[in-house]
């Protein structure tokens, strides 16, 4: 039986705004399946986003949804969570949103280990404003603001999250749609700040100008470049050249921010 997404989609909002071949729709579907498998009450789920293409996602899903200002998804989400810890809070945003303009909120949420689930939709470019380079644009790649090729080094989002103290960090791709669903589910089940970096494709802004002729070729690049983190442990650096790992990259049990806060201050219930 085909999966019925309608239960979680707001009626009348599709087709979505994303370009042909943009992989955000694939991730949206993975996200819906993951949430559905956890049987959350829709009234208890809050989804926040910043500004950018993926930040339009909350508008399509039937939860409490908050499309905030550029980069501030996690900061708004923090307010929601602290005010009502019973809510299941998801904060999402793109690579520019989360690691450039919102980088400060990203690292500090990781440091606090507040129980928020963060999804970073990494498509290596600012898509909505027309293909400007982001902190994850690969060196040498073309962007409208890097017409001679990207000259800056880029962020590894998962390393950034681990270094900053997130207690669950995973990477997946839009191509690996069922793996993506699994990573999202595990992240949601984890108590503490969890980050899932989701490798996505922007065929319009990034692909066309960077030797990916079709959206499918970008998906196949993900397929060919992703190595499961367990498998990667037995691979040499030479074998891993040009590849990236997917799976749960880091998981640890450590005190969650609000539990620590409430206990320390002796919060009057």
């Amino acid at each position: 039986m085909a999966y019925d997404y309608a239960k979680y989609l707001r009626p009348g909002k599709l087709p979505h705004i994303w370009c042909a071949g943009c992989t955000y729709g694939i991730v949206l579907k993975s996200m819906i399946r993951a949430i559905d498998s956890l049987n959350y009450d829709k009234n208890d789920v809050v989804v926040t986003s910043g500004i950018g293409c993926c930040s339009r996602l909350p508008g399509y899903v039937d939860f409490n949804t908050l499309h905030t200002t550029h980069g501030r998804s996690i900061a708004f989400a923090t307010g929601v969570k602290v005010a009502n810890p019973k809510l299941k809070v998801i904060a999402l945003g793109g690579d520019g949103d989360m690691t450039a303009i919102g980088g400060n909120h990203f690292i500090h949420a990781c440091r606090r280990n507040i129980d928020i689930t963060v999804f970073v939709f990494n498509n290596n470019i600012y898509g909505m404003t027309g293909a400007q380079y982001s902190p994850t644009t690969p060196k040498g790649a073309w962007a409208t603001t890097a017409p001679y090729g990207m000259t800056e080094n880029n962020f590894d989002i998962t390393s950034l999250a681990i270094g900053a103290g997130a207690s669950f960090v995973a990477r997946t791709t839009a191509y690996h749609a069922t793996h993506c669903e699994k990573m999202i589910k595990e992240a949601l089940e984890h108590k503490g700040l969890s980050v899932v970096e989701i490798i996505n494709a922007c065929p319009t802004g990034f692909g066309r100008k960077n030797k990916f002729k079709t959206p499918t070729s970008m998906l196949l690049w993900m397929k060919d470049s992703a190595v499961n983190v367990e498998k990667a442990k037995n691979m040499s650096p030479e074998e891993l050249a040009g590849k990236f790992t997917i799976g749960v990259l880091h998981k640890e049990e450590k005190p969650e921010y609000l539990e620590t806060y409430d206990a320390t201050v002796g919060l009057k219930k």
Binding site: A2, L9, L14, W18, G25, Y175, L219
Partner: peptide, 13 residues
Amino acid sequence: ELRCPDFAIVVYK
């Protein structure tokens, strides 16, 4: 169906 970004294909087995 899995990788259609547009919710446009549904396969009934």
